[in-house]
Computed example of a mutant assay.
Amino acid sequence: ITKHLADASPRGNMVFSPLSIYAAVALLAPGAREDTLDEILRLLGVRSRDELEDLISRVAADALKDQSGSGGPSVAFACGVWNDKARPLKTAYRETLVGTYKAKSRAVDFRGNAGKAAQQINAWVARVTGNLITAVVSPKSFCPATDVVLFC
């Protein structure tokens, strides 16, 4: 991944989070079945969906806790799942994302108003990162086939 990202922007600075990549892939697991689920679990190094959910719950509750109030590190980590309003997420999937994975879940209009969808996503990213990151998508980030966008 590092080489691919560096090759894409050889003269620019690069920052990426392996934890964010892990978390984004983990967000796929609650909605996956059979071979796809097996492949995701193998990639993430866990044996079952339950083991993955337990790991994610512990990391979200402990390792990513903001400890700045007690002199520790200030931590901001957020995951978001944005679906097109014409393609609602299944209730059980949404509940797992929000409850177990602590992800934000919102429906937007990728197809009918890509500009507003990009604005909503970018506003959320700016808010959860304390304006350290102000934009991650543009209206051109979405195509007519865009149903879901994951951010971590």
Rank of each mutant, 00 (worst) to 15 (best):
I1S: 03
K3P: 08
H4S: 11
D7T: 01
A8I: 01
N13S: 10
M14K: 02
M14H: 03
F16E: 09
F16W: 05
S17W: 05
P18V: 04
I21Q: 15
L28W: 08
A29V: 09
P30G: 03
A32S: 13
A32W: 07
E34A: 09
D35R: 06
L37M: 02
D38L: 11
R42Q: 12
V46E: 05
R49V: 11
D50S: 10
E51D: 15
L52H: 06
E53G: 06
I56M: 10
S57E: 14
A61N: 01
A63F: 02
A63S: 01
L64F: 00
G71A: 00
S74M: 14
V75D: 00
F77C: 04
A78C: 10
G80K: 12
G80R: 13
N83P: 03
K85H: 02
A86F: 09
K90W: 02
T91C: 15
L97W: 04
L97S: 08
V98S: 15
Y101Q: 05
K104H: 11
R106Q: 10
R111P: 06
N113Q: 12
A117M: 12
A117P: 14
I121Q: 14
A123Y: 13
A123C: 07
A123I: 08
W124K: 13
R127T: 11
V128N: 03
G130V: 00
N131H: 11
N131G: 05
I133L: 09
I133M: 08
I133D: 09
A135T: 06
V137E: 03
S138R: 01
S141E: 11
P144V: 12
A145C: 08
A145M: 15
D147A: 11
V148Y: 10
V148R: 14
L150Y: 07
L150K: 06
F151T: 06
C152K: 13
